[in-house]
Write a protein that binds this DNA or RNA. Sequence first.
DNA 1: GTCCACTGTTAGCGGTCGTTAACGCGAGCT
DNA 2: AGCTCGCGTTAACGACCGCTAACAGTGGAC
Lengths: 209, 209
Amino acid sequence: MTRQSTTAEAAPSEQRKPTRREQILAAAAELFAHRGFHGVGIDDIGSAVGISGPGLYRHFRSKDAMLGEMLVAISEKLLAGGRRRVELAGGPEEALTELVRWHVDFALDNQALITVHERDLANLAEDDRRRVRALQRQYVEVWVDVIREVVPATDEPTARAAAHAVFGLLNSTPHSKHLDRDAMAVLLHRMAMAALTGPGALSGLTPTD
Amino acid sequence: MTRQSTTAEAAPSEQRKPTRREQILAAAAELFAHRGFHGVGIDDIGSAVGISGPGLYRHFRSKDAMLGEMLVAISEKLLAGGRRRVELAGGPEEALTELVRWHVDFALDNQALITVHERDLANLAEDDRRRVRALQRQYVEVWVDVIREVVPATDEPTARAAAHAVFGLLNSTPHSKHLDRDAMAVLLHRMAMAALTGPGALSGLTPTD
DNA sequence: GTCCACTGTTAGCGGTCGTTAACGCGAGCT
DNA sequence: AGCTCGCGTTAACGACCGCTAACAGTGGAC
């Protein structure tokens, strides 16, 4: 058996010609996003990268392993980036702005992965699913904390639901290709900020004080 | 062959004990929403309604026909409801409010269908897919028109993207069950309205005027 | 020059899935 | 009473799919 790391090991830093594994994962993500995990065959993925069918097993243990690896990788990247933005920010307002900017950029640059992420989670193997769920929860946590700092008197369940709602808004990017990237980024950023911080959106919801 | 209508024929009005076909469609929707169309077997659907496997073929021509019928039905219902709300409204602002309310209620009451709707469209047969796409487009059109009336100086592509973004926000409902239905409805309504009409959200985006 | 790890091929297996065939049975009409 | 028809059953078929086995070329290490 060839060497196969369970998760990505080389930190996927900047410019580097993509590994074969990465090429395959990218192609698989595109296919999964379009037809769903079970709607895509091994042969489809293979021919998408120029090799045919079972040749993939030189790079991955199984089809489930591909899904697992790509969802774990994306979840880790999302969480790490979000945390970094919050740490670097000078205050809650800036943290929220940076968080939105981060998520917008991420969604625009990883449309296929975003789609698969919220679509085929249920098709993951038990271990990977727990892993991804944990990472997702932590990412939401980051948002919840920032939201509650910027909009005080927001109870936690509401902040959590609001975070999910904003994710839905920002992840809508695969459904509309009518605008170019920059215009889309600006639009999504403004709408998200308005939804969260606009007067009469979150504020004044809870019957507190 | 038993009688099988291509689309729903009896207007699905109010109280009426659900047909067998409707029971089956509801169960199938739940399963499809969770594991994806190709991740659900005929036997799964059957046992979900108490019969086993091929008994379903007394009610539907094929598995694809189930998906087709439920997506066409939901798309028609969504469009019809949206149009009615706009017609009954006294002006653009009220129209937008009613449109949001309608979509919120719909999403909260049909979570499984909403999920399948934006997930397994690609797995539809050619004919049904075209049909659903057309209905979706018309529904977006309704929103675009109202948005451009309420927020003038919004160009059409922007309004379209904004509509999709709001759909994403409102359809986030299956991802967060932390709030009860009413609280969720209020939250989503306010966030959507803020995202669309809030100062600095849509308005002032285009370099017009 | 030899070797071997890496990466790819084709053939085939075992299981699953959608669908059909053949049959059964109770309810309601004549 | 008998026939029909709606609704369900089980058995089985053919296709497909994930995966393994067996084999092969190529390129770098020594």
